[in-house]
Amino acid sequence: MRVYCAVFALGLRRYSTYRAATAAAVFTNVVFGLINASVLLALFHARPEINGYDATDAVTHVFVAQALMGPAAVMGPPLELAERIRTGEIAVDLMRPASPLAWWLSHDMGRAAFTVAARSVPTFAAGALVFPLALPDDPARWAWAAGTLVLASLIGFAFRYLYAASGFWLLDAKGVSAVSHLLAPVFAGMLIPLVLFPPPVADVLRVLPWAAMVQVPVEVFLGKDTVPGGGPAGALALQAAWAAVLLGLGALVTARAERRVVVQGG
């Protein structure tokens, strides 16, 4: 367990060395947030309420979503694991007395923790400076929001781990990543809030794993509690279930991949 704490710490420190990239990412997130918020404001000017969202909810959604861009990494970056599989460096990794899944999970959580501090907070603060945002006034709600952020990051990792691991069979996981990074933002509610979809569609998308990275955390933050089962606990339970399923799948794929490498020499 100690080794994974150490990997988490190294992941965090490692990403803290990329100062220019971090500043650029904050800038991009803020600009994209401003554009997206302006478009939604125009829309909500025409219709003050859409499926439970008002204009303030919509703008808050945009900036929470932008703040999740770093930790949940819905639109990438892909895990370095993908590149290591392609180049064969994975052999070095497999020789470590450590679980590859847990190793990369700790590494990515280190990265996520860094991006929360260095990207999410400034991005959200910038949004709050420009627009009136809906902030929870109940401290418990902030705690739920923190929990939902952690789970969103876990799911974001699990997705990218599965994409990367597809490289064991496809040799190059770039195609898989490209397609998923195109579709995921739509399904997640990153590009536009899922409430803008017709309610039956939104209700289906909301319980899928992509929504658990953005739409569900945003609704927890906004206090919407639309997830079946009600309350923030229901939302977090849904996220936790998806995290468990996807990470379990990751463990399964890892075992298969190791067997493939070791037995077939792939």
Partner: peptide, 28 residues
Amino acid sequence: GIVFGQRTTLWWDLPLRDSLALTRHLYR
């Protein structure tokens, strides 16, 4: 102990010291 001349186990962006410190936890 394994060394592949053309691959590295070290953390590219961090001081060498950090990679070496990690082996302590890795191998207990």
